[in-house]
Simulated assay, not measured.
Amino acid sequence: MITAYMLRNKVLDVVQLTTQDVLPPDTIWLDAYKPDDEEREWLSSLFLEEVPEEEELDEIEASARFYWDTDGLHILSLFPQRIGGETRGVNMSFTLRNNLLISFREEDIGIVRLLRHYMRHDRVEIEDAMDILLELMDLKVEYLSDLIEDGYTTLEETSELVLSDEQIHEMLQELMEQEETNSQIRLALHDTRRALRFLRRTVRQQLLSEQKKTIDEVLHDIESLLPHTQFLFDKINFQLEVAMGFTNLQQNKVIKIFSVAAVVFLPPTLIASVYGMNFDIMPELHWQFGYLVSIGMMLASAFGTYFFFRKKGWL
């Protein structure tokens, strides 16, 4: 699906294009969502070189994510995508040249839908293609900030369950999911910072003063958010260590009970073993009260060992 955004008299028009259409004049953003082969062939007429392929969206090398060629400025940016409790990064490719932004994506990214909503309701000021790219970056950082706030809330909830036997497994699963989410947040922040620095360094002369200000503000927001991600990592690791320590402590208590039980029954076992010997000459073998005395000795030795442990504070 290809969507064209035209800026006419400071008013944005949105049109769905087919492969039979031509590129409308005054188009400043061309968004390709899951383009098929026919749509890719149509888009290839806009490129001097190759149209970005789906597998290229997973490149992580800096030279592959940010570069300049005859088609213009290329940026491959990582966008967070939350599905249920899982957060993962989705790459989106941008090509910017001659006041035309061409984007490629293989998934429905929520930030793109949010920008469309803002554009339809005139909640953002768009004057050229660069403004659209910067607005996407700004919205992405705001969304990452919201995810960080959710992380703080989640860790406050898990901190109340860290010493709970009944919900320890759910808490550990929540911590592992939060650790993955925080990793994706940190990765997206670093990726956005690299993209904005590349923009500022590469097209500094073409940027308007307001656009330079926006880049600086977003970079400042990123720098202020990165320490929060490190704090979340530390807090997650602390809660994991406390949870594992508590689990080990509970297991040690169980092992301690078995150990004490074994020691308590050791003297009675010794007495029973002695009188279970099959020697011919045993003074108590034919004694009338031998059985009762041996049982009494077993009980006395067991209780004596138990009370000795209690007095020492080992139980």
Rank of each mutant, 00 (worst) to 15 (best):
K213D: 15
D221E: 08
K235A: 00
R194G: 13
E210G: 03
F246Q: 14
H220P: 01
L226W: 00
L207E: 07
R200G: 09
I255P: 08
N252T: 14
F231R: 08
E210Q: 05
K256W: 10
Q251M: 13
K256F: 13
S259P: 03
K235T: 06
L208H: 13
K212V: 10
D216E: 09
F238S: 10
A195P: 15
F198C: 12
Q230D: 15
S224F: 00
A243H: 06
E217N: 09
T229M: 01
F198S: 13
N248Y: 00
R197G: 15
D234C: 02
D234E: 13
I215H: 06
F246A: 13
F198H: 14
L240D: 00
R194H: 12
K253C: 02
A261C: 06
N237L: 09
Q205R: 12
V218Y: 01
S209I: 08
T214H: 07
Q205S: 12
H220I: 14
F198Q: 13
L232T: 07
D221M: 09
V203Y: 04
Q206D: 14
F198G: 15
L226S: 08
K256T: 15
L249C: 01
I215L: 06
T192Q: 00
F238V: 03
T214Q: 09
Q251V: 14
L219N: 12
F246S: 13
M244C: 02
V203R: 08
L199M: 12
I236Y: 02
L208T: 13
K212G: 14
D221V: 05
V254G: 05
K212E: 14
D216R: 06
L207H: 12
L208A: 10
F246E: 14
K253T: 10
I257G: 04
Q250G: 10
T247D: 09
V260R: 00
L207G: 10
S259E: 03
I257R: 07
Q239D: 03
K253Y: 11
L207N: 11
L199H: 04
K212W: 00
Q211L: 04
K213P: 00
D221A: 12
S209M: 10
K253W: 05
L196T: 09
L199A: 11
V203G: 02
Q250T: 14
I222F: 05
R201P: 15
G245D: 08
L199V: 14
L249E: 15
D234R: 08
A262E: 07
A262S: 15
L199Y: 06
L240R: 14
L207T: 09
I255Y: 10
S209T: 10
T247V: 10
F233E: 09
F258P: 12
G245Y: 00
R201V: 04
E223G: 12
Q211C: 06
K256H: 13
L249N: 15
Q251K: 02
P227R: 02
V218E: 06
I215D: 07
R193L: 05
V260S: 01
L240E: 02
Q211T: 12
N248H: 02
H220L: 11
A243I: 02
V260Y: 01
T229S: 05
I255V: 15
I236T: 11
F233S: 13
I215A: 05
E241L: 03
D234K: 07
R204I: 01
T202F: 00
D216F: 00
